[in-house]
Computed example of a mutant assay.
Amino acid sequence: MNSAHLFPVFDGHNDTLTYLFRSPERSFLQENSQGHIDLPRARKGGFAGGFFAIFPRSTSQQGQKPGTSPTGERSFPALDPQQAHQFTLSVMAYLFRLEKEAEGQIKVVRTGEQLAWCLQNDVLATVLHFEGAEAIDPNLDALEVFYQAGLRSLGLVWSRPNIFAQGVPFTFPHSPDTGPGLTDAGRELVRACNQLRIMLDLSHLNEKGFWDVARLSDAPLVTTHSNVFAICPSPRNLTNKQLDAIKASEGMVGLNFALSFLREDGHNNPTTPLDIMVHHIDYLVERMGIDHVGFGSDFDGGITPSQDIGDVTGLPRLISALHNHGYDDAALRKLTHENWLRVLRKTWQS
């Protein structure tokens, strides 16, 4: 089964853009052994595009994004908005320069029509995503400017508080019910994103915030990189009630490949087999239906099953495992890219 051509993968979340900006020695256009994604490896793995996140990190955080260990209470203080704003501008500029340098091999997509064209023409589709809204001011002036520049997906929070909402800590095991809901500014941000047709990503958001968005938003509810709480009791994962609400809204969930959100014990055992990923997908499909599930790898942000997935070139092995488990071609097309295209077209109305 040549999954790279039959089932191009549009991915719900990666941190490659932020990783590249922070690692100037790493080239995206040349194959290398650093990180999870570069363009040549993406071609080999059938990776057709995805949400490329900008993740501002405070100076107190060391190394890559935390959240890869189940031990201890791991929460983070609010980030300085000015620092986040400047970092976000710099990474956006980096992306646009990369798009130009790639000479037609990469496109920052702003409409569903553009995304569909990229999937059909072997051009890597990049959706600009903010992982946390710290770069946006309370008056939402920056939101309008970022939208005009290409922002099409916004995570209200990462796993820390901001002026809009509160994220869940990296504590295991723990309920996602970890604090208050949206602030007044957060509710205004949801309404503004609905008006602009910016997709809201509810990954990292605590449970009260999730239900506030569910009551306010007129768009499909989406978590780009989250898993099943009933299997892995991390606060980053979704309860059955949340899954039901996502289905009712015609939204979807992107399966997170990070081990700490997959395994029942939350541990980062790199020899973990693909069976655990298939188990989460089975649960999501049985609970919500095949139309509401996709991939949200968290490449370059989490630790993946290194033997069976490793990096982006491991995607065909996951697709083969799903095929061998009983998912037919129509189901695999939905899981790999068609569901994301449907949700984005409905959200963006384009």
Score class of each variant (00 low, 15 high):
Trp158Pro: 05
Phe164Pro: 07
Ala165Asp: 01
Gln166Arg: 14
Gln166Met: 13
Gln166Gly: 05
Gly167Trp: 03
Pro169Gly: 09
Pro169His: 07
Thr171Asn: 11
Thr171Trp: 11
Phe172Trp: 11
Pro173Gln: 08
Pro173Val: 12
Pro176Gln: 12
Asp177Leu: 14
Thr178Asn: 11
Thr178Leu: 05
Gly179Cys: 12
Pro180Phe: 08
Gly181Asn: 10
Leu182Cys: 09
Asp184Glu: 15
Ala185Leu: 15
Ala185His: 14
Gly186Trp: 02
Gly186Arg: 03
Arg187Tyr: 01
Glu188Met: 12
Leu189Met: 13
Leu189Lys: 06
Val190Trp: 00
Val190Leu: 07
Arg191Ala: 15
Arg191Ile: 09
Ala192Leu: 04
Ala192Cys: 09
Cys193Lys: 06
Cys193Tyr: 05
Gln195Tyr: 11
Gln195Trp: 04
Leu196Thr: 01
Arg197Met: 08
Met199His: 03
Met199Ile: 08
Met199Val: 13
Leu200Met: 13
Asp201Val: 02
Asp201Ser: 01
Asp201Leu: 00
Asp201Pro: 00
Leu202Pro: 05
Ser203Glu: 03
His204Asp: 07
His204Lys: 09
Leu205Trp: 00
Leu205Met: 12
Asn206Tyr: 11
Asn206His: 09
Lys208Leu: 13
Gly209Gln: 03
Gly209Tyr: 05
Phe210Asp: 01
Val213Phe: 02
Val213Ala: 01
Ala214Pro: 05
Ala214Glu: 13
Arg215Gly: 05
Arg215Met: 10
Arg215Trp: 00
Leu216Ala: 14
Leu216Phe: 01
Leu216Trp: 01
Ser217Glu: 04
Ser217Ile: 00
Ala219Leu: 15
Pro220Arg: 09
Val222Trp: 03
Thr223Ser: 14
Thr223His: 03
Thr223Ile: 10
Thr224Asp: 10
His225Asn: 10
His225Tyr: 06
His225Cys: 05
Ser226His: 02
Ser226Ala: 14
Asn227Ser: 13
Asn227Leu: 10
Val228Gln: 04
Ala230Tyr: 04
Ile231Glu: 09
Ile231Arg: 10
Cys232Trp: 08
Cys232Asp: 08
Cys232Ile: 08
Cys232Glu: 07
Pro233Phe: 08
Pro235Arg: 09
Pro235Asp: 10
Arg236Val: 12
Asn237Thr: 12
Leu238Arg: 13
Leu238Pro: 05
Leu238Trp: 06
Lys241Asp: 15
Lys241Leu: 14
Lys241Ser: 15
